[in-house]
């Protein structure tokens, strides 16, 4: 029994890690532009298709993975330049609708330009292996998600704390107007935020695709939904909050799946969302609210 509990805890941490990366991608952009980018999922799809091409042309896997992450970052910067920058002065609702539009356009482009059918992304069989840690097994992919999540969080933290651009981004999250008065170029900060968000989407896409084995035009929908829920639980716009929210969501999903009685299992998501509601009643601003000078 101890083994099973330990196993489920590891399962929970692994899923929570992916959700944390996803939510972080949304939070980076929201903290600076106040936009919930619902096209975040389609950035993942872009990374997925690039990974598909990389595997198809037998590129070395690490190279294909880097290319996929780069493509998602590039796609994020491009959507910012083409869709969101012209809308910068618009209110939050218009920005939100713009992101829905970007997402819908990209999905139809994938469906009619690539294929409506899923494309297989066969990864080396080493990645479907299992690592045995004493009594518990951990699949290579879930193990990789834990490692990659930790590495990404540490790197992101160093970037935000130690580099000028990182500090500018943190300042922008607190008060964008004051930052601009300091002579920092807004366009550059925003472009970097989108690029960073895209790279995070790319990293989570690689983990996501490795688990599902294929990429399809509509694949971004569920992850962006999870990311949104996680970001809201954590406190919109707060980076530590997004991470905490991701873990809370992932852990509650796995624990309910593991320990709910069989008859209640079809209602698992209702239980998870009850936890979300309870958290929001307890802390309406989220677990770790963003520090912000934004006045509503």
């Amino acid at each position: 029994m101890m083994d099973i509990i330990l196993q489920q805890v590891l399962n929970a941490i692994s899923l929570g890690g992916i959700y944390a990366l996803l939510a972080l991608g949304l939070a980076v952009v929201f903290s600076i532009v106040g936009l919930i980018n619902f096209a975040h999922g389609e950035l993942m799809t872009v990374a997925g298709y690039v990974l598909f091409l990389g595997v198809l042309f037998a590129l070395p896997l690490p190279f294909a993975v880097l290319l996929a992450i780069g493509a998602a970052a590039l796609a994020a910067v491009l959507t910012e330049r083409l869709a969101f920058r012209p809308m910068r002065k618009a209110d939050a609702t218009s920005l939100l609708l713009t992101s829905f539009a970007v997402s819908a356009i990209l999905r139809v482009l994938f469906q009619n330009g690539i294929s409506a059918r899923p494309k297989p992304v066969p990864l080396p069989s080493a990645l479907s292996g299992t690592v045995n840690l004493g009594p518990v097994h951990l699949g290579a992919v879930p193990l990789a998600s834990i490692v990659v999540t930790v590495l990404s969080l540490v790197t992101l933290n160093l970037f935000l704390k130690r580099t000028t651009m990182g500090q500018a981004m943190r300042a922008a999250a607190e008060d964008f107007q004051v930052l601009r008065l300091m002579g920092i170029k807004a366009n550059r900060v925003i472009a970097v935020a989108f690029g960073l968000s895209g790279a995070l989407a790319g990293i989570s896409a690689v983990l996501w695709v490795a688990q599902r084995g294929s990429v399809d035009p509509l694949m971004g929908f569920i992850p962006v939904l999870k990311a949104f829920v996680a970001a809201v639980i954590g406190g919109l716009g707060s980076l530590p909050g997004a991470v905490a929210g991701g873990f809370v969501l992932g852990i509650s999903e796995v624990l309910f799946q593991a320990f709910l009685p069989e008859a209640a299992l079809p209602f698992r998501d209702a239980f998870v969302l009850s936890v979300v509601i309870a958290i929001l009643i307890w802390r309406p601003e989220g677990l770790i609210p963003a520090k912000t000078a934004r006045r509503s």
Partner: peptide
């Protein structure tokens, strides 16, 4: 035995741990 999942669930670790047991 019978197990349940949600469409698009992605993570089956919890369900599979029960099957393994």
């Amino acid at each position: 035995g019978e197990g349940t999942y949600g469409l698009g669930q992605q993570d089956f670790a919890a369900e599979v741990t029960k099957i393994a047991a």
